[in-house]
Design a binder for these strands. Sequence first.
RNA 1: GGAGGGAUGGCCGAGCGGCCGAAGGCGCCUGUCUUGAAAACAGGUAUAGGGCAACCUAUCGUGGGUUCGAAUCCCACUUCCUCCGCCA
Length: 422
Amino acid sequence: MLDIKLIREESEFVKAALSKRQVDAAIIDEVLHLDEVRRALILDVESKKAERNAVSKEIGRMKDKQEREAKIAAMRSLGEEIDALDEQLKMSEARLFDQMAGIPNIPDPDVPIGVDDKDNVVIRTVGEKRDFDFEPKAHWDLGPELGIIDFESGVKLAGTRFYVLEGAGARLERALIFWMLDLHIRQGYHEIYPPWMVREEVMFAAGQLPKFADNLYHDHEEDFWWVPTAEVPLTGMKMGEVFEESALPLNLTAYTACFRREKMSAGRDVRGMKRGHQFDKVEMYKYCLPENADLELDNMVADACATCEQLGLTYRVLLQSTGDLSFGSHKTYDVEVWAPGVQEWLEVSSVSNIGQFQARRANIKYRPADGSALQFVNTLNGSGLGLPRTLIAVMENYQQADGSIVIPDVLKPLMGGIEVIR
RNA sequence: GGAGGGAUGGCCGAGCGGCCGAAGGCGCCUGUCUUGAAAACAGGUAUAGGGCAACCUAUCGUGGGUUCGAAUCCCACUUCCUCCGCCA
């Protein structure tokens, strides 16, 4: 959610910034109009309420019965006017809120202008693509051949976009989760194990609702929404709270499964396990001071890169263009790893500075140490990393000519003596 | 699932339908005193919205209702606690 005052006072700046991400300026004009209507109503209804309050106090002190009855009658009709105006104001505020809730965040000036992910800019590439003296296989061949991925059972159980991991495959997934969490703890994050289902208001706070309901799983009988990322509960955890400045930054890490209907990606990446309805992810999250957000964003990108590096993966860092930037993001870096079997760079992490956007929706503030007025915190989130794609990259990069897979060094202690999956 | 009890400011806690945005205490901030600190004393100390401002409006878990007027009365919901039942 943007600041209505910013829109009111710097409307040209806001329009220009949003036009970079193809947002029609008309919505800003609409918001400005609704805001004016709203404020006019507030002026009117509040002056009437002030009058009623004042007169009601007098009534309490009045002795003269006739005069008293007359005032009560007058206030009764004034009350009816107030009710009518309140109703109008409520509707006016709801319309304004609906419009505001649909406006994406303003991109950072550093963000390159573009229409989609093809306009993302590669910042750096680390490591060399491995040279194979044989034809590297894709994970959808390697996995079933080794008996560690079972696509048929996934479909039998839940349909397309589901799969089963078994044996050393399941264990490798578990090892990656365990190892990543430990790494993030060493990097200074505090581990959280949150609910995987949340209330509607939490989905709103995180910016998933109302706009992206299509992509979420929802239990209609209870007010439960399955989390599409741990970012959602990590945002919701602090809803309505005020941090002391000294408590920031707060770095959190959490493992959750993530659930996505993938309606927006129907037909894309249907083969293999690159894009499923359920996947594991270890997430990093920060609450921080606005002035430190740029620094913390760099730190988080470095933390995500360290994960790739220690796994021995070739990776690159991209700065997302305005066309690819997610709804709530101010600035986002993607980290992609090279997967030689599918011959693709796979996005394993998206590290974003959300600015105040979620903090406004979730009402999360901090109390400045100098005692000045409460301010919204900034929030940042980043995958550290998305599991299926990391698993794909590990499998495809560590495969050998005979179809076996070597376990990366950092994971060996967690594999119960397995050094090669064969 | 059933029965009962609670939810008030940073914390504890009081609150006859009007003088209650809310007593009192604690904490915190400022000042006096002190070489400094402590103590004592005095003052201050919620959030949001509107207004150039004085100031006004709203908020006592949330949402409705009754009333000229609601922290206070009524209804629903949320949540916490206790007990019973059921269950991984």
